[in-house]
Amino acid sequence: MTTLSGQPLSEAIGYSFSNANSAPHREHSFYPYTDNGGSTLGITGSDFAILAGDTRSVAGYNINSRYVPKVFKIGGDDETGDGAHIVLSVVGFAADGQALKERLDAVVKMYKYQHGKPMSVRACAQRLSTILYQKRFFPYYVHAILAGLDEEGKGALYSYDPVGSYEREQCRAAGSAASLIMPFLDNQVNFKNQYIPGSGEGHALEPKKAEPLPRETVEQLVRDAFTSAVERHIEVGDGLQMMVITRSGVEEIYYPLKKD
């Protein structure tokens, strides 16, 4: 409320003038995110990379659908994704995941059209980080994992937080069952807490050295990780989708999981 000029405040008859600054800020009650659950997992080997995810989509305690893929081929020649050499998994808010996937797919395709050569996984990884960071203050609410083969033909795996911080890793689990799967991976892929028997006593015990694993072993590890996660996490189940990236392309494997 304003008073009129020159009038002593005590004698002023009040009149209301528009005063925009007095409007209090209101908070939005619309929350633009949801958690669609599920888990993803990536492991690399010396000449391949595997990226996997379950296919359940949830909303609270509801199962939306038993088949909503979280793992996508990026930069393929057509809508089926054939000819792709990069795979992306997204877990968290599925609508953001879908949008992110479509953007990255467009970027990788444009790269090929403009430069006449496929985008390297390293470049794609950096680009994905930029895309995520550009939405730093309204993030894509997803944990992304990107997989492919590096310039030397070795399996390459990059994992991200929702705002674009990323690093190349040997293996990574993301999503609702990440905390269940990751310790299993630490032990079985990076041989954490594994020692060479009889190599010494106490601190002198020699840790078992991590070596790249063969494809069959990794596939089995992925299946085991998921069948176990299904038992202990309600948001994980229905189906397991595995993308195996090798020199000859991307192979997709589907494996049923328990639907309970």
Partner: peptide, 28 residues
């Protein structure tokens, strides 16, 4: 002040109802 309602008669006007600046309210 001519033509404006007196606050002592009608009470202070709540500018919330005629807000042209500030945040725009969308569907909540």
């Amino acid at each position: 002040a001519w033509g404006r309602p007196r606050d002592d008669v009608y009470g202070a006007y709540n500018p919330l109802y005629l807000q042209t600046t500030g945040p725009k309210a969308h569907t909540q």
